[in-house]
Nucleic acid binder design. Structure first.
Lengths: 338, 338
DNA sequence: TCTTGGCACTCACTCCCGGAGAGTGCCAGT
DNA sequence: ACTGGCACTCTCCGGGAGTGAGTGCCAAGA
């Protein structure tokens, strides 16, 4: 359908349009790229490309700009992924070095990603599925209230408020012992199974208290920590002030809604490689003029979560894809090594 | 200096300009407000107000707009604080009802504030200074790493990674007992004092381990949780798309910097009542065209933290001030009651 | 059959001009 | 001290002409 030259022309249109922000015409094209044909030939090819839906013109007497379909082809077949610059590699190293805990890793990752892609970055908290229950504690607070605290081997600490009633310190101590003995060392999924049978083994007097605590623990082990999402680099949106209505506004609105962010990233889940959603391909209507470049991250076939960026469809895909991939890989390795 | 009528005119200019977004002229002024004088008189007064620096004209043949100084006078002396509408009161109630823990309260507060003021909301985490140390735990993870976990009576849980070396479970148990015995029930500030002397009482063999754990605890007790700030309602900025460079861009940039946010709120600290910083009064250069309305919140002379909103200087101060004040008070009461 | 030069045509963009309208400052009169 | 009147200033359209980039098409050439 599309011969080599047409494809080369599409590539040239995409790269020129991305860098110049202006519709690109046939003359400019032959001048800036060594196509070895005349503008007239290019025009004929462009007419075909337009007919096929890869490019379009804003108005009759203007140059062409890529359509979503055009970007799609470019990303799938034409965009040789640019290798990162040494400076960027170094940035990744120094940015992540010295991260304290998971929170800190996530915070640094989002900053890093925003900085090297110059886009808005989104990072989902990792689900460390290989982590096991390390420690369970029950702490009474004022009155009948207390906290159940769960520590996993990965260093994650989760807490939930719980109604303790007027349990004695002895009751709590026993509960603590029982729970820890039963659950420490188990993966969360196994812990859930174990918890459901654990209740029956409780002495009758501790049933009511046990029930509420077990319920909290159940919540904590099943609750997906990856529903937490961190966002950064929002000021990068100011570079697109001209596309306020189509880009800035919808992105700001999407960022406010965790659910939307999770859907945007969620669709990229599964594959470990970079996923690109262009314009209308996004599972969120208002983001018609933006693309999402995302990648799951993890270690050794173990997928933990997803990270990515949002930006206008007119973005530098090769660099962005390379950056997202590099950061995802690095973070995976970093978290695996601790 | 300014007689009653001039002051009334200034008030009229501010209110009209805020609602219409357009420079207001003498004719419109007498028509919309019952000033009982002719436009010519108003013009004379406006000339004086301009000379004094309260208002200015964008260009010769336009109406007047208030200056920062004009807004300042308006806020200080002229803006009768509007009472909240019943709908707003109800919104506050329903929004906060059912909040689970401190995190949840903060999240809900920021949403609420953004919603009723239609501005970008900023909420600082509360310093619950009256809280005491409730529980300390030390949990070993992989290898030499471990976690120190601190629970306060207010239900806040803090954790810090710590190098345990190859301490035995017995050593840790002893440490746990010692620390809890020494610190439970103390206010953080006292705990810090106590910690510094505690080290000397350690058996020699536990000194190195003790030192690193005490250091972590020190960090945790001194580290101000109120350095955490939560932001919401960013999409409200889209209403000011026309002032992209002066409002949207600088605000987005400020929001990315915790330090800046803390400074913006920080200056409002101390007084429990609402503080308004208009334009150049802000301690952050780029926010020349925006105002910050903030209030500390707390309970019974106990100030915990600050919350507020950022928006263009051209905002509805009476309503905004009323909303910020109401939310601050409600949150203070809510947190006190638990 | 593909490519090319030429040519007429379209259409956004800019500049300019003139009229309308809003608003001001000033002055003389009450 | 206030008011009506008046001349003046500027912004804000709307229309019209010129410019230039870019296109589509066609006929000639390889």
């Amino acid at each position: 359908m599309l011969d080599d030259r047409k494809v080369a022309i599409l590539r040239a249109i995409v790269t020129d349009y991305v860098s110049s922000r202006e519709p690109v015409g046939s003359r400019a094209l032959v001048e800036r790229h060594s196509l070895n044909v005349s503008p007239a030939t290019v025009r004929n090819d462009m007419a075909v490309l337009e007919e096929e839906g890869y490019i379009t013109q804003p108005h009759t007497s203007a140059g062409r700009i890529p359509t979503d379909k055009g970007y799609r082809l470019f990303v799938d077949r034409l965009g040789a992924v640019k290798p990162l610059s040494p400076a960027e590699r170094r940035a990744i190293q120094t940015f992540m070095a010295g991260a304290l805990d998971v929170d800190d890793v996530v915070r640094r990752t989002v900053r890093l990603l925003a900085q090297i892609t110059h886009q808005v970055a989104i990072v989902q908290y990792p689900v460390l599925s290989s982590a096991t229950v390390r420690h369970i504690d029950i702490v009474p607070l004022h009155g009948e209230r207390g906290l159940v605290i769960l520590v996993t081997s990965s260093g994650r600490v989760e807490q939930r408020p719980v109604l303790l009633g007027y349990a004695t310190e002895e009751d709590l101590a026993e509960l603590r012992t029982r729970l820890n003995r039963a659950l420490v060392g188990l993966a969360p999924s196994h812990a859930v199974d174990r918890l459901t049978v654990l209740l029956d083994e409780f002495p009758l007097s501790m049933r009511p208290l046990g029930t509420s605590i077990v319920a909290s623990l159940l919540e904590m082990t099943t609750a997906d920590p990856s529903t937490r999402v961190v966002v950064g680099g929002v000021p990068n949106l100011t570079r697109f002030g001209d596309q306020f209505e189509t880009t800035v506004k919808p992105v700001l609105e999407a960022l406010e809604e965790q659910v939307v962010l999770l859907r945007l990233l969620g669709e990229a889940g599964g594959s470990t490689d970079v996923t690109v959603r262009i314009g209308h391909e996004n599972p969120y209507e208002p983001l018609q003029a933006t693309s999402v470049v995302a990648s799951s991250y993890g270690h050794a076939n173990d997928v933990w979560a997803t990270l990515g960026i949002v930006g206008p469809t007119r973005m530098d895909y090769p660099s962005t894809i390379a950056s997202v991939r590099a950061v995802a890989r690095y973070v995976g390795r970093f978290l695996a090594e601790g």
